[in-house]
Design a protein around this nucleic acid. Structure first.
Length: 472
RNA sequence: GGCGGCGUAGCCAAGAGGCUAAGGCGGAGGUCUGCAAAACCUCUAUUCAUCGGUUCGAGUCCGAUCGCCGCCUCCA
C-alpha cells in the first residue's frame, strides 16, 4: 500500500515517495525559546511525533531536525528585560522544553540545532543570495527581493500584488526597496544590546527565516523530503524559506509540506498574544493526566482543529480505560494451547486496518477504530473461553507494536504503597468470608485515599491516578 | 477584500462516486455480580448546513447561499 500525505504545496493528497529509498529526511519547525511552549505548540510537536513514529512503523529510517530559535526579537527583548545574557535566558526554557517533550512521550529528533550556533552558515547563504542577485543591502541590513523570485507565493497562494501592508509598521521598513521584502540579516540596533555577530555588512543578527534554510540544509541537504509546522507558519515563514533556499541553491527545497491545524480554546486559536493559553505544567496542575493529554492531542487528525476541554480529557480517560481492558485480558492469558484461528484473524484484521488508516495521511481515527474493534473482539472471544498464554502474548506483542506509534497504550505502572496492598488483601479475605460490611468499608476507605477498587472476574483491580495494578 | 480549511447523531469523529453512513464518549434496556465497577448483548443518523446541478448512482464531484475557523503582522 502507498503512503499518502496531504501536501500543502500541491494542495491535495499526494503519494509519498522518499528521495532515498528507506530514508526520510524531515525538518520540523521548532519553538522560539523566549517563553515556555504552551499546549497548542505541543499539538504540532505531537503531530510531528506521530509522523515520525508512523514512518518508522512503516519501515523508514527517519532523520529529523527540529530547530531551536534562540535569537530573534522576543528572545532578545526578554533577556534585556531580565538583564541577563541571551543564553542565560534561553537555557532554562530549552531545558524545560525537553522535559515537556519527555512528559508527553514525544520521541527525540536526531538534531536540535540552535540558531546561535549556526550564524556562519546563515551568512554563507546570505552571501549566495546577494551573489545571485536576489538580495540587497540597505543600511547594514540585507533584504530578499521577492519580486525576483517568480514563484513567490506558491505555497500560501498569496498573490504578490494582493499583499496588503500590515497594521504594524516595522521601524526598519523605510529601508526596504519594497515593503514586502523580508530581512535576511538585521543590522545591529541599540535594543540588541550585547547580542550581535560580525559580518561583511557590519554587526548584526540573522532574520528569522534564514535560520531554518541554513540549518535544514546543513543537516538534511539542499533538498529533502518533508517539512512541517503549524498552519500559521505557511505565510510568511515557509514561503520565505522556499524563496531563500531555492534561490540560493537552484534546487527544489522540499518535496512535501505538511501543516497541522491549531488547538482551539472557546472557538479561538490558542496563542500567547490572545493570552488564552495553558502550558503543559498548568494542565497537569489542574489534574489532567499526561496520558490523557497525549491521547487528546494525538487522536485528532492533524489537519483538524482541536478543542481542548475538560470534557475532551475526560472522554480520553474513559477511552483509555477501555483500551486498557485488552491489556488486562491479555495478562490473564494462561495455560497451554496454540493461538486459535478466530483470535489470530482478529489481530491480523486489526493490524491491517490500523496500517491502512495510518498510512493514509496519518488517519488516526481509523487506526484507533481498528484497535477498539480488536478490544471488542477479544472480549467476545475470551468471554466464551479464557485466553491461553500464547494468545495473551500475541495480543501484548501486537499492542506493543502499535504502541510504537501511539505511545499511550502502556501507562507507567506505579508501585502501590504497602499499606494499600495489605488493605486489599484483608478485603479479599473478608469477601471470601462474606463479611461484606468490612470489605465495603475498606473499599470506601481506599477510595477516599484515591485508590479505586474494582472486582473483576479475573481479580481485584486498584486504580491509582494514572497507574493500575492487578492484585490477585 | 485576497488565500486556505471546515460544517456528518446529545458531544468528539471517520468517510475522497457504488457492499447495511467506521470508531470513541455519553445515554437507555438486559446478562453477570453480595453490592459497586468492569465486561458482554441490544438500542441511540432513512440521512450528512441549505438550495440547485452533473451522474444509472453523491455525505463524497460542480455552482450558489448561510455559518464557523485560520492566514494575510510575531505566532505551532
Amino acid at each position: 500500500m502507498a503512503i499518502v500525505f496531504y501536501d500543502s504545496l500541491r494542495k491535495k493528497r499526494t503519494k509519498f515517495e522518499s528521495m532515498n529509498p528507506g530514508i526520510v529526511k524531515m525538518y520540523t519547525c521548532g519553538p522560539t525559546v523566549y517563553a515556555d511552549a504552551h499546549i497548542g505548540n505541543f499539538r504540532t510537536y505531537i503531530f510531528e511525533d506521530l509522523l515520525r513514529r508512523t514512518l518508522k512503523f512503516l519501515g523508514y529510517k527517519v532523520i529529523q531536525v527540529m530547530n531551536l530559535t534562540d535569537v530573534e526579537d522576543k528572545t532578545i527583548n526578554a533577556s534585556n528585560e531580565q538583564r541577563v545574557p541571551l543564553q542565560q535566558h534561553t537555557a532554562p526554557i530549552i531545558n524545560r522544553f525537553f522535559e515537556d517533550l519527555d512528559t508527553l512521550k514525544i520521541e527525540r529528533a536526531e538534531y536540535y540545532p540552535r540558531a546561535t550556533e549556526h550564524i556562519p552558515l546563515m551568512l554563507d547563504l546570505v552571501k549566495k543570495l546577494i551573489d545571485n542577485g536576489y538580495a540587497y543591502e540597505s543600511e547594514g541590513s540585507i533584504y530578499f527581493r521577492i519580486e525576483k523570485f517568480k514563484s513567490y507565493g506558491k505555497l500560501s497562494g498569496m498573490k504578490l500584488d494582493k499583499l496588503v501592508r500590515g497594521a504594524r509598521v516595522d521601524a526598519d521598513e523605510y529601508e526596504k526597496d519594497d515593503f514586502r521584502d523580508f530581512a535576511l540579516w538585521k543590522a545591529w540596533s541599540e535594543e540588541d544590546g550585547e547580542v550581535g555577530w560580525d559580518s561583511p555588512y557590519g554587526r548584526g543578527r540573522p532574520g528569522w527565516h534564514i535560520e531554518c534554510s541554513a540549518m535544514s540544509m546543513r543537516y538534511l541537504g539542499d533538498e529533502f523530503d518533508i517539512h512541517t509546522g503549524g498552519v500559521d507558519n505557511i505565510f510568511p515563514h515557509h514561503e520565505n524559506e522556499i524563496a531563500q533556499s531555492e534561490c540560493a541553491t537552484g534546487n527544489k527545497f522540499v518535496q512535501y509540506w505538511l501543516h497541522s491545524a491549531h488547538l482551539m480554546v472557546d472557538g479561538m486559536k490558542m496563542s500567547k498574544s490572545l493570552g488564552n493559553f495553558f502550558t503543559l505544567r498548568e494542565l497537569i496542575a489542574k489534574g489532567y493526566s499526561t496520558r490523557s493529554i497525549r491521547y487528546v492531542l494525538l487522536t485528532s487528525h492533524y489537519r483538524q482543529q482541536i478543542n481542548l476541554s475538560g470534557e475532551s480529557v475526560l472522554a480520553a480517560k474513559a477511552a483509555l480505560e477501555r483500551l486498557d481492558t485488552l491489556r488486562h485480558s491479555a495478562d490473564e492469558g494462561a495455560g497451554a494451547g496454540e493461538i486459535r484461528s478466530d483470535l489470530a484473524k482478529s489481530i491480523k484484521e486489526s493490524e491491517l486496518h490500523f496500517t491502512r488508516s495510518i498510512e493514509d495521511d496519518l488517519g488516526i481515527s481509523g487506526a484507533m477504530a481498528a484497535l477498539f474493534e480488536l478490544v471488542s473482539a477479544v472480549h467476545r472471544f475470551s468471554n466464551k473461553s479464557p485466553l491461553n498464554q500464547k494468545e495473551g502474548e500475541a495480543l501484548l506483542n501486537f499492542w506493543k507494536k502499535v504502541d510504537s506509534v501511539l505511545s499511550f497504550l502502556f501507562p507507567e505502572q506505579k508501585e502501590l504503597p504497602l499499606e494499600v496492598l495489605e488493605s486489599v488483601q484483608i478485603r479479599l479475605k473478608a469477601r471470601l468470608d462474606r463479611d461484606f460490611s468490612l470489605s465495603d468499608k475498606i473499599r470506601d476507605d481506599l477510595a477516599s485515599k484515591g485508590f479505586q477498587i474494582k472486582d473483576t472476574r479475573e481479580g481485584t483491580i486498584v486504580i491509582w491516578v494514572q497507574g493500575r495494578e492487578l492484585v490477585k
